[in-house]
Computed example of a mutant assay.
Amino acid sequence: MNDDELMALLGEAVADETAVSERRRTAARAAFTWRSVDAELAELLHDSALEAGAAVRSGPGGAEPRTLSFGHSGLTLEIEVDGEVLLGQVIGTGEAASASEPASVLLERPDADAQSAETDAGGFFRLEGVRSGTVRFVVEQGGWSLTTPWVTL
């Protein structure tokens, strides 16, 4: 099959409204229009699940909370996941740190509705009922944003 035939088949699949949900269609359009992904995507700075011995570590009542840290352009998103509770903090430097309005934090999933939270004055937020699976975070405040790569909780 050549490229033209493949594109024709993909076009037919997308045109069939019963084959592709509107949510997935919107996500696909966004992926194709995101031209500067490497410049805009936050870097995973730390994941406690990747530490040596993390698989055998345990504390009272089970595994220790998992911690993740993402950074981009002077912004850092710190996350701690303990069961179905997610605690986080948005930390900024320079212009982002001086913003007086709360940040909006969106936890997105490829197969479910997003969960959102607003940060308090210290940049802290909390999400409950967070189930395991593939997620990413989008943080927005004023004129800046941070989007994390997809990770599995």
Rank of each mutant, 00 (worst) to 15 (best):
Thr18Met: 04
Ala19His: 08
Ala19Asn: 08
Val20Leu: 06
Val20Arg: 00
Ser21Asp: 04
Glu22Phe: 09
Arg23Glu: 07
Arg23Trp: 05
Arg23Ile: 04
Arg24Ser: 10
Arg25Tyr: 07
Thr26Ser: 11
Thr26Glu: 13
Arg29Glu: 12
Ala30Leu: 11
Ala30Thr: 13
Ala30Val: 09
Ala31Ile: 00
Ala31Tyr: 00
Ala31Phe: 03
Phe32Leu: 15
Phe32Cys: 15
Phe32Asp: 14
Thr33Ala: 12
Thr33Tyr: 12
Trp34Ile: 08
Trp34Leu: 13
Arg35Ser: 12
Arg35Gln: 14
Arg35Phe: 15
Ser36Gly: 09
Asp38Thr: 15
Asp38Leu: 14
Asp38Gln: 15
Ala39Lys: 05
Glu40Ser: 14
Glu40Arg: 12
Glu40Ile: 11
Glu40His: 11
Glu40Gly: 13
Glu43Pro: 03
Leu44Asn: 03
Leu45Cys: 10
Leu45Phe: 10
His46Val: 09
His46Ile: 09
Asp47Trp: 02
Ser48Glu: 03
Ser48Leu: 00
Ser48Asp: 01
Leu50Gly: 10
Leu50Ser: 14
Glu51Trp: 06
Glu51Met: 08
Ala52Phe: 07
Ala52Cys: 06
Ala52Ser: 07
Gly53Thr: 05
Ala54Met: 01
Ala55Leu: 09
Val56Met: 07
Val56Gln: 09
Val56Leu: 07
Val56Phe: 06
Arg57Lys: 11
Arg57Val: 08
Arg57Ile: 07
Ser58Glu: 13
Ser58Asn: 14
Gly59Ser: 03
Gly59Glu: 06
Pro60Leu: 09
Gly61Asn: 05
Gly61Phe: 05
Gly61Met: 06
Gly61Lys: 05
Gly61Glu: 02
Gly62His: 02
Gly62Ala: 02
